[in-house]
């Protein structure tokens, strides 16, 4: 073991011991609380409350309400970071327009994948579509859909799936569709308010104090929470297409003959 590695080891041990002492019995002492913080009380009391219609997000699921309503701009820029990273990967490895079809795995694996991947696809769609009522949402649904696509990519080989329609250009188009849909949904209430002669907020969902215009939150008793449902579905499409694009580029991209 070199002196450099020993130095890192010693400093890590000191770091771990000092931080654990500070967090348990020292200056930063953490205790398990028996009550909620005031901010959390505010979020929970206004997440779905018809009695405070002017302040409520009208989304029964608290986490999705924070992600897409209270802190929507935060999530929007997170999506910008996400697609920046995927565009960076594509720029590093190069686009894949054609790839020779391979044999894939054995017949048993293919048959099992046909069943399992379809089931995962259905579960992902359900998570995304019910994200405003039950645990779940756009990211969860999109990541689950992406798992289904990548299992199929590994089992059937990239070339065989490209012949069936999972192409580079198609995924770029789907991803752009999701992003354009998200931007349009963000500005939907603003555009509607301009025709009514008042000015609404960007990322506004429900009517707020001073701006008496907003989305409906239910149709015939079926709650869909205004813009939250649209944002969940569009985000699931965009995330799944982005990951499919990433795996297509990772499997098929890069010129291996470039090595010196």
């Amino acid at each position: 073991m070199s002196a450099y590695r020993a130095l890192i080891l010693v400093s890590m041990v000191v770091f771990a011991l000092a931080l654990s002492y500070a967090l348990t019995y020292g200056i930063l002492r953490l205790e398990v609380p028996l009550t909620l913080r005031d901010l959390a009380k505010l979020y929970i009391s206004t997440t779905f409350n018809p009695l405070k219609r002017e302040l409520s997000a009208m989304t029964p699921e608290g986490v999705t309400a924070i992600v897409w309503d209270y802190r929507g701009t935060d999530t929007f820029f997170e999506i910008v970071v996400f697609y920046g990273a995927i565009i960076g990967s594509v720029a590093l490895l190069g686009a894949v327009y054609r790839y020779p079809p391979g044999p894939g795995l054995s017949l048993i694996a293919k048959t099992v994948t046909r069943i399992v991947a379809t089931m995962i696809l259905v579960v992902g769609a359900a998570i995304a579509l019910h994200g405003h009522l039950t645990p779940g949402g756009g990211f969860q649904g999109g990541a689950t859909l992406a798992v289904s696509i990548t299992i199929a990519l590994v089992t059937f080989s990239l070339g065989a799936l490209m012949l069936r329609g999972l192409t580079y250009g198609g995924m770029v188009a789907l991803r752009s569709l999701g992003l354009i849909g998200i931007v349009l949904t963000v500005f939907m209430v603003v555009i509607a308010s301009l025709t009514a002669g008042i000015t609404a907020y960007v990322f506004q969902n429900q009517p707020k104090p001073g701006v008496p215009i907003g989305m409906a939150y239910s149709v015939d008793g079926i709650v869909f929470s205004g813009t939250v449902w649209f944002l969940n579905v569009l985000d699931a499409i965009a995330v799944a297409a982005g990951f499919a694009l990433l795996f297509i580029v990772l499997i098929g991209g890069g010129v291996e003959g470039e090595r010196e």
């Binding site: 998570i127 645990p135 990541a143 990548t150 990951f243």
Partner: peptide, 14 residues
Amino acid sequence: PDIVLVYIPVAVGL
């Protein structure tokens, strides 16, 4: 449960 639903596909799958 929200974190479980995003963590299982991401950290065990992707």
